[in-house]
Structure formats: C-alpha cells, structure tokens
Design a protein around this nucleic acid. Sequence first.
DNA 1: TGTTTTCTAAATCATAAGGTTTAGATAAGT
DNA 2: ACTTATCTAAACCTTATGATTTAGAAAACA
Lengths: 235, 235
Amino acid sequence: MRDFSKKLRVLLIDDNANHLRGIKELITLESSYNVVGTTTSANIGINLIKRYQPDIVVMDINMPEKDGLQALKAIGKLGLETNVVILSGYDDSDLIYRAMKLGAKGYVLKTMASMKLIDAIEQVSEGRIYLPAVLSTRFFEHFQAVAQKEEASANEENLLSSLTMRENEVLDLLTQGINYKSIAAKLVISETTVKTHVNNIFQKLQVNDRTNAVLYALTHGFKTSASKSQVMTAV
Amino acid sequence: MRDFSKKLRVLLIDDNANHLRGIKELITLESSYNVVGTTTSANIGINLIKRYQPDIVVMDINMPEKDGLQALKAIGKLGLETNVVILSGYDDSDLIYRAMKLGAKGYVLKTMASMKLIDAIEQVSEGRIYLPAVLSTRFFEHFQAVAQKEEASANEENLLSSLTMRENEVLDLLTQGINYKSIAAKLVISETTVKTHVNNIFQKLQVNDRTNAVLYALTHGFKTSASKSQVMTAV
DNA sequence: TGTTTTCTAAATCATAAGGTTTAGATAAGT
DNA sequence: ACTTATCTAAACCTTATGATTTAGAAAACA
C-alpha cells in the first residue's frame, strides 16, 4: 500500500523533449509527486531507475533507440518494485497485450486528457492496474484470441487420442527424455516391452523417432502426468 | 453488432434451481430479452445451446456434475457465436483467468446487485467484455504473474547463451526433429561436421542425447529461426 | 464361445546416434 | 606474432534406437 506521508518519486522517459517538459510540468503541479528525473533516452532511463529506484516510471512506448517493450523487459529484470505507466500514441491490441505481459501497470493514450495521467499514476501507485475501458476491451479480445489459438492447436483432431493408457505412460516418460532402460525400470516391465510400446506410439503418431514423438506430444497438448495432477489439485 | 430489432435469446444454466428461477424472473422483466431455456445441468445446457443457439448464456461456474470451466470449454468447441456470462460466488483470480482464457465474455459475482447482471448481458451482447473493476484488477495480477513466470524461465541463466551461431542453427534443426543426414544437406556441410556440432551442443547443454537437447531448448526459451523472424516483423 | 484389445516379451537385424580424438583453415582479438 | 574461437571434417568405435515378426495372458466385448 502507498505511504501517503511521502511524496511519490516519479521518473519520466520520453524521446520527445517537448512532451517530456509538458508531462513534468503537469505532474509537478500535483504537490504529492516528486519528479526525480527525466530523460529522452531509454538506456539512460534504465540507469536512472537503477540509481534512484523511483516508485513510478512514466514511459513512452514508442522510442527509436530502444523500443518501449525492450525497455520494459530490462526494467522487469532489475527486480525492483518500480511500477511502470506506459504512455503511447498507439492503441494496437498486441502492443497493449505485450506491455501488460511485461509487467506494465498502467496504460495511458497520449490523446487522452492529461488529467487521466495523474489518475493512472494514482491508481498504479496504490497497487492497482490502470487501463482505460477501450483498451481493456482490446486487451481482452487479444488475450482471448491468443488463448483460442492455443486451445485450437491443443484440440486439433489429434493422434494422441488413439494411445492406450500404457502408451500414454510411456510417452510421458519419453517427453522427459528418459531412455528405454530407465523407462523399463520405472514401469517395472522389460526393455523389449517398452520398445514394443514405443514402436506402437510411433505408428500411431506417424513419426519414426523419439524426438518427433516428443515434439508431436508437446505441440499437440499432450498432458503429462505432472500437469494432470496439477489440474486435479487446482480444480 | 447487436440487432436491436430482435429480442436477445438467453439461456440460463445454474445447478441451484432457486437461483435459476430468480435469474429468469430478473431477466424476463427486461422486455428486450427472451429466455429460451433454463437448466440445472451443464450437460443438458450444452445440448440446449446446440439446439437453440442462444445469443447469450448465463452460467454458474460452480457446478458439481460438470464444472463451469469444462462446460465453457465444451461450449467453445461448438464454434457458435454464443457469448457466455459467468455467474460465480468466487472471486479467485485463477478462476477468472481461466474462464476468460476459455472465452467467457462477462463475469458477474453473485454478491453483486442483480441489475449488474443485466448490465453485463447488455455489454456482452454488444460485443464488449464485462468485468467488474475488482475482478479486472485480479485478472491482471494473475495474468502478469503467469507472464512473469514464463519470462523467468526464459531468462533463467541458461546454457543456451554459450552456443555459437552455427550451433544455434543446428539446434534449431534438431528442435524440428531432423536427422543428421538432412541437417547436413540443409546446411551444406558434411554429416560428420554436424555430428561434431551436435556433440558440442550436448556438452554445452549438459545433456547426452537429442531428445534432452530439444527439451532443454524448448523449456529454456530457445528462439527458433521461425520465431526470430516473427519477432522481427512484429516489432 | 469366439473375437478384439491391451499388455507383456523375446529374437533379430539394420542403422542412426553418440563419444572421442585429431586436425586443417579462418577469423578475431591481444 | 601469438592465442583463441569457430567451423570444418574424418576415422573409429560403441551403443541406443528403430523395424519387424511372433506369441502368450488377461480383459473386454459381442
């Protein structure tokens, strides 16, 4: 939670020096904020973040030198508690999705009223997420589109369904990179039996070596015993 | 977009018959909705959806027979334009995340004012997403937590960084399940050279067969040439 | 009862894959 | 000039893997 007794330390990164000045003035008007630094360079910005460890970073996502997504990634790697509010001229759903995925806590369009930026900073500093309604709709559409693709490839008429229980167990072990001898030991059956199962698996999956069997399994939503039990406990 | 000249066809699924009656009355009060069916069984519900193809399904996510997530999945597989509004007593972030991932368009807590349900149906039927502010915050937290885990495992100090350019190319082909002979052909080098590279890869990745090399690559964020070019064009 | 499926297992064979060493040619860096 | 890294390649050997056939036992099914 935010400590209201202290001023929030804010760092600004925008390659456009004019915008930078404008934003700084806007934020400085609010007595509860303290702009600890401004820079037009993403790389310098990252160093400033390391040095000053601000509470909030307001950053343009569209910069030439290092794009905002890369900068976000770099900031994430610092492992600080700094929250980032993205400032952007774009409203592309993929960009929003990727920014949120990389840990951005707020997203403000440059076309929006400037007071909205203060709103966003306020929200984000209190640990909440700030996304204008338009953008959150876009975000969800994109999120669901991505999820749908994953589902589709997992549900695709797949050869995996033709495997027997035992073959599933064997394939599971194959996807862990285990060899015949160890599989036999784990399942307490002979090595030749394992070979028989594996060959049957190959035929059913229409491949002719382990690597391709494993690749098929992984790209067609094969549920390993580990992930199965995970689902069981989660539900 | 919604056609205002027609009544919206709504189907209700809730294992609690009392809730079901309550919701039906609430919705029927609105003259623009037409409740085409109600059922306490998820399985029957799915059949009703197939038969009546409603515009909106309002479904409880917490049902004994078939849980709401499974039902959502089944509805998704029907490939209809039906939009689902989830009704729930829970506010668990993982549940919201998974429901949204499976294509739910709205999420209403049972504790919320009943008029909110009408709001949600209205929003969703117009193609938007409905998530109360509390839940969208939870959703984003969960979303970012999941994304962070992915990032973490991809950024983990990994052995992949020690590979040379050529070794990367070879590993890329290995992850496509290609054998020595074909790799040699693709790279226009001899098979023995490929073997040399592969052996060097094994040592660097600390594995001793292709399957484990491929598994290591896939689970440690190895970028294939395909995904690399994708990133290039996307940025 | 007869049929099919699944799991088990062995035998045999061919070859792909893995391990190790040695070495020449370049290119890059000190 | 010297060293190091990288890419290339061959020879040699061992073993793991894959392909195919045959077959017994148990369970499921018609």
